[in-house]
Nucleic acid binder design. Structure first.
Lengths: 213, 213
DNA sequence: TTAGTTTTTGACACTGTGTCAACACTTGCG
DNA sequence: CGCAAGTGTTGACACAGTGTCAAAAACTAA
């Protein structure tokens, strides 16, 4: 029968999602590093071996988490893009959205940061990695379109450079700042500033770099 | 005798350095992640167990590598600071020096990046971690003094913000950009740019953000 | 029922970490 | 010299985690 294959496919997808849910729950408690396949399996009430039917690897599972994160981030960026008229304002809102994202979904953010670190494995298997790359791409595209919009509407100076490069630069910038703010909060405070302060400052500085002179 | 304790102390330090040498050699070949204590021990012609006499942990050993890296980076920054008259030019030179550093001493750079990621363990043991924090501090101080110099000599606009925050921001920025450029070189090229291009652009953009209007 | 297919698992092999009791070597002293 | 006390060094162990596989269990269709 054909219904049967269909049902199985659905169950397969549901299970797939459940495993990711379980992994996120574990990671939320102990972090992605300390998250073990055993714990994930226990949390999803499956045997550990079964995880390897649904995911290649532990990295593969993390890619799946990252994928969800990217989707969420994309939605936030899109919202930011449509909530503002001027290109610059939209880009600024994206910076803030990125920061919010890192705070509200730390596991997703961490998975994303990991993904950003690792060089792509090339055309090697890993369907989930590919999906992450595509997810990253669509986020970038939103940024690019807003930068172009800003150049047209005059809120961003025309000679900032090619929008594609500007988007990449801003992306790297935000990653760097957020990482600094989250991991070195103690040190920053010890110097008399605080993390929120640093981030505000960084966003402002970036806006200044894009605005016309 | 007192000479004997002295000699032993020297031998201890020599061995300490030799282990770090061995670790760097291994890491240069396979990367910090894949570097195993066993391989390091073999490379230093010692038993694995002895490594744990000289270093707490594998992380501790990586901190030691990081320390060397920070010292090297400090020297490069200091050179950059004294090679230029204007504060802005000095800061720009530091950006370039950071990039050079990441290219010429990838293992040191990677150790540094790892250190930057991990939150400090607090007052917990780990003498090497403390040394890294201090090393990071002295690098920051060089940046701060150059920013202040730039504000005085007019090459940097006075309202960029508190020099301490600006230094932190620039630091995070460079980390983000270099990471992006090194791990995602393939993707960047796929979009018609290249890594060197991106870095040039990023440095230019940063300079623009600091320069007076 | 039964034979074929798919799902699920326990048990295993492997790699790497960190620890410890015991071994080996130096050194100072009777 | 010989021999204790201290120091350096190591092999062997316990442990934790990953990924794999043959076989058990569950399901399906005749």
């Amino acid at each position: 029968m054909n219904h049967i294959a269909e049902r199985r496919q659905e169950e397969r997808e549901r299970r797939h999602a459940e495993i990711i849910d379980a992994a996120e729950a574990v990671a939320a408690q102990v972090g992605l590093d300390a998250m073990t396949m055993d714990e994930v399996a226990r949390n999803a009430r499956l045997s550990r071996a079964l995880l390897y039917v649904y995911f290649e690897d532990k990295p593969d599972l993390v890619f799946a988490i990252c994928q969800r994160g990217l989707e969420s981030l994309r939605a936030r960026f899109e919202a930011a893009a449509s909530r503002h008229d001027s290109g610059l304002a939209a880009i600024q809102a994206m910076g803030a959205a990125f920061v919010d994202f890192s705070r509200e979904q730390p596991v997703h953010y961490d998975a994303l940061a990991r993904f950003a670190r690792h060089s792509p494995l090339g055309q090697d298997g890993a369907a989930n990695e590919l999906a992450c790359l595509q997810g990253g791409d669509s986020v970038q595209r939103i940024m690019v379109s807003c930068i172009e919009r800003g150049i047209v509407d005059g809120s961003i100076r025309a000679n900032v450079g090619p929008p594609g490069l500007v988007a990449l630069t801003l992306w790297g910038y935000m990653q760097g700042i957020i990482q600094l703010a989250t991991t070195k909060a103690a040190i920053i405070e010890h110097r008399g500033y605080d993390a929120a302060h640093l981030i505000d400052h960084a966003l402002q500085l970036a806006a200044g770099a894009l605005a016309p002179r």
